[in-house]
Amino acid sequence: MTPDQLDAALHDIRWTPDILARALGCDVSLVHAWLDGNAEIPMKVGVWIKVVADHHQAFEQTKPAGVKGKKYLE
Results as ranks from 00 to 15, higher is better:
43 M>H: 07
39 A>P: 01
59 F>C: 04
39 A>I: 01
41 I>Q: 04
43 M>D: 11
36 D>H: 11
39 A>Y: 09
44 K>L: 10
40 E>P: 02
43 M>Y: 07
48 W>G: 00
42 P>Q: 04
44 K>P: 03
58 A>Y: 06
34 W>R: 06
59 F>Q: 10
48 W>N: 00
49 I>A: 03
50 K>L: 07
36 D>I: 01
46 G>A: 12
34 W>N: 05
39 A>T: 11
38 N>K: 13
49 I>N: 01
45 V>R: 01
44 K>N: 09
41 I>P: 01
34 W>A: 04
55 H>M: 09
61 Q>S: 10
40 E>T: 14
59 F>Y: 05
59 F>D: 09
50 K>P: 00
43 M>L: 11
63 K>R: 15
57 Q>H: 06
59 F>S: 08
35 L>M: 10
61 Q>T: 11
51 V>K: 06
47 V>D: 01
51 V>S: 12
50 K>I: 04
53 A>T: 07
37 G>N: 08
39 A>R: 15
40 E>Y: 02
63 K>T: 09
48 W>H: 07
51 V>Q: 13
40 E>R: 14
41 I>H: 04
43 M>V: 10
42 P>E: 06
53 A>E: 07
35 L>T: 04
40 E>H: 07
43 M>Q: 09
47 V>P: 00
38 N>M: 02
51 V>R: 10
46 G>Y: 10
44 K>C: 05
42 P>S: 08
48 W>M: 13
60 E>K: 14
51 V>G: 10
40 E>N: 07
41 I>G: 05
59 F>M: 13
62 T>E: 12
40 E>L: 09
44 K>F: 11
45 V>H: 04
40 E>K: 11
38 N>W: 02
63 K>F: 03
49 I>H: 01
45 V>F: 02
49 I>K: 00
39 A>C: 06
46 G>I: 11
41 I>M: 05
35 L>H: 04
57 Q>A: 12
54 D>E: 13
41 I>Y: 05
54 D>A: 13
43 M>T: 11
36 D>K: 14
37 G>T: 09
40 E>Q: 14
36 D>A: 15
42 P>C: 04
43 M>E: 13
57 Q>C: 04
38 N>F: 02
47 V>M: 08
46 G>S: 12
60 E>M: 12
44 K>S: 14
37 G>C: 09
58 A>E: 13
54 D>V: 03
44 K>V: 13
63 K>G: 02
47 V>R: 11
42 P>D: 08
53 A>F: 03
34 W>V: 03
38 N>P: 00
50 K>F: 01
52 V>Y: 00
60 E>V: 09
58 A>M: 09
54 D>T: 08
45 V>I: 15
63 K>N: 07
45 V>L: 10
63 K>C: 03
53 A>I: 05
34 W>F: 14
44 K>T: 13
46 G>H: 11
63 K>A: 09
56 H>C: 03
51 V>N: 13
39 A>E: 13
57 Q>F: 02
48 W>F: 12
52 V>C: 04
46 G>K: 14
45 V>P: 00
44 K>Y: 06
53 A>Q: 07
41 I>V: 15
39 A>D: 07
36 D>W: 03
60 E>Q: 15
